[in-house]
Every structure is written in structure tokens, then in C-alpha cells.
């Protein structure tokens, strides 16, 4: 794939999460949709202001759990009833109470692994390059004490001049153009 060129978006830097959330809400209000907030710690209001979709991680976790449960339970059943039947203290071969604990452990294991790897995959990680790192102030602030809002050029409403003018109506520390 050839490298993409041109403007990725406009990046506004804020000092407080409240300012960021306010600007995000307003941007959404006037019609911007392709945008993202970058914060040093989770700010749930920002996710709300972005109208962030619910993720599929819980679903993956649930499916993983169910898969672990059925795998373990069926495996134990198969081993004990057909593959290697053993008479243990005269109990029936299908002694389900004894199968519960390993099935439970597998449920947790599969659910945990699906949640962790599912989250990583849905986040699009590992990601080796992201355009916002081209902004020098982003590198310094995004993981410490600054809050960023990026309005992306992919948005149909995006215009270098008007979007910049819009972002400058907020108490942003700076508004910089980010290259691809």
C-alpha cells in the first residue's frame, strides 16, 4: 500500500478534561463525526461525548467462556465415559459433579484470554504508526497532563480554515495541523 499523504486532521490541545469534553460535545453538536479524544487516563465523559459505540469485548469474553465451559465438560465426559472408563468408588461413569471444577477453571481461562486478546485485536493493536505522533506537543503531553481532540480530515464537514476557526473558539492551548 502506498503511504498516505496530506492532512490527517487538526489537533487541539487542552489543559483540562472539562474543556476537552466541552469542545467534543460542541464539535458533535455542529456535525463533526470523524474525531477522536486522546487523554492520559480514561475520561468516561469524553467517550460519552464522542458517542463511543459499545465494544464487542464483553461478547467475545462471553463466547470464550462458553467455549471453555463446553470444551472442558465434553472433554471430561468423553474421557471418563468412552476413552478411558474407570470405576471410581462405584460411581457412575458420567459423574458430573466431579467435572464441574475443571469446567469452571476452563471457563475462566478461556474468558480471560478472549477478553484480553479480543480487546487487543479490536483496538487494532499492534499498531506501528499513527499520524498524531507527528505533532510534537502530542508526544510530550498525551501521556502526562494534556488532553487532545483531533478532528479528522476524513470527515465530510472538515475544512482546514473553518475547522481551525471552530476549534479556536475554545480555550485550546494550540491547534495544529497533523500530517499523515
Amino acid at each position: 500500500m502506498p503511504p498516505r499523504e496530506g492532512t490527517y486532521g487538526l489537533l487541539a490541545e487542552f489543559n483540562t478534561p472539562s474543556e476537552l469534553v466541552h469542545a467534543t460535545e460542541q464539535a458533535r453538536h455542529v456535525g463533526y463525526r470523524r474525531m477522536e479524544c486522546y487523554t492520559p487516563y480514561p475520561v468516561e465523559e469524553a467517550a460519552e461525548a464522542l458517542d463511543f459505540h459499545t465494544t464487542r469485548v464483553p461478547l467475545l469474553c462471553l463466547l470464550g467462556g462458553l467455549m471453555g465451559l463446553t470444551t472442558a465438560f465434553l472433554m471430561e465426559t468423553w474421557i471418563n465415559v468412552w476413552a478411558y472408563p474407570l470405576n471410581i468408588a462405584g460411581r457412575p461413569l458420567f459423574s458430573w459433579p466431579a467435572f464441574i471444577i475443571p469446567a469452571y477453571e476452563w471457563t475462566i481461562l478461556f474468558a480471560g484470554l478472549s477478553a484480553a486478546f479480543g480487546m487487543i485485536a479490536l483496538n487494532g493493536l499492534p499498531q506501528l504508526y499513527h499520524p498524531v505522533f507527528n505533532a510534537p506537543n502530542f508526544r510530550n503531553g498525551a501521556t502526562t497532563d494534556k488532553f487532545f481532540l483531533c478532528l479528522e480530515a476524513a470527515d465530510p464537514k472538515f475544512s482546514l480554515t473553518e475547522t481551525r476557526a471552530f476549534l479556536e473558539t475554545f480555550p485550546a492551548v494550540s491547534v495544529v495541523e497533523v500530517e499523515h
Partner: peptide, 12 residues
């Protein structure tokens, strides 16, 4: 609850 049941079931 299940632990109690399982122990008693195993002990028989």
C-alpha cells in the same frame, strides 16, 4: 454451597 456438596459427594 457447591464445595460442601462436592466434598460430601466425594466422601460418600
Amino acid at each position: 454451597t457447591f464445595a460442601e456438596f462436592l466434598i460430601i459427594w466425594s466422601g460418600n
